[in-house]
Lab assay of single mutants.
Amino acid sequence: TETYETTDETEARKIAEELKRRGLTFRIERHGTTIRIESD
């Protein structure tokens, strides 16, 4: 499991693209301005 936290929408998108490219599944949670991406 890898966890990323960012407040930057663009960075979050880049992380999501990278995880997809590596064939990982992940979920995105939003907590206020923080975007949390957690891979399975």
Rank of each mutant, 00 (worst) to 15 (best):
T1A: 11
T1R: 14
T1S: 11
T1P: 12
T1W: 13
T1V: 12
E2A: 10
E2W: 15
E2V: 14
E2F: 15
E2C: 15
Y4P: 01
Y4H: 04
Y4K: 01
E5H: 07
E5G: 01
E5V: 13
E5Y: 14
T6A: 05
T6I: 06
T6L: 07
T6K: 00
T6F: 07
T6W: 01
T7D: 12
T7A: 06
T7I: 06
T7N: 10
T7S: 10
T7E: 12
T7C: 10
T7L: 07
D8S: 13
D8P: 01
D8H: 04
D8K: 04
E9L: 10
E9Y: 09
E9A: 09
E9D: 06
T10I: 11
T10A: 14
T10N: 14
T10Q: 13
T10K: 10
E11N: 04
E11P: 01
A12V: 05
A12K: 00
A12C: 14
R13T: 09
R13F: 11
R13W: 12
K14S: 09
K14R: 13
K14T: 08
K14D: 06
K14N: 09
I15N: 00
I15D: 01
I15A: 00
A16F: 07
A16K: 06
A16M: 15
A16S: 07
A16E: 06
A16L: 13
A16N: 00
E17I: 09
E17V: 08
E17A: 13
E18V: 07
E18H: 09
E18C: 15
E18G: 09
L19F: 10
L19G: 01
L19D: 00
K20N: 07
K20G: 06
K20H: 09
R21E: 05
R21M: 07
R21F: 06
R21I: 06
R22W: 04
R22I: 03
R22S: 03
G23S: 02
G23D: 02
G23P: 00
G23E: 02
G23W: 02
L24Q: 05
L24K: 07
L24E: 03
L24M: 08
L24W: 07
T25M: 09
T25W: 12
T25D: 10
F26L: 05
R27Q: 06
R27M: 06
R27T: 12
R27G: 03
R27W: 12
R27E: 05
R27L: 07
I28C: 15
I28G: 02
I28T: 05
R30Q: 08
H31F: 13
H31Y: 12
H31E: 09
H31L: 11
G32W: 02
G32E: 04
G32A: 03
G32F: 03
T33E: 11
T33D: 13
T33M: 12
T33G: 11
T33W: 07
T34Y: 09
I35D: 01
R36D: 00
R36E: 00
R36W: 07
I37T: 01
I37C: 02
I37G: 01
I37E: 01
I37N: 01
E38A: 08
E38F: 15
S39I: 15
S39E: 04
S39L: 15
S39G: 05
S39A: 15
S39N: 04
D40Q: 13
D40Y: 15
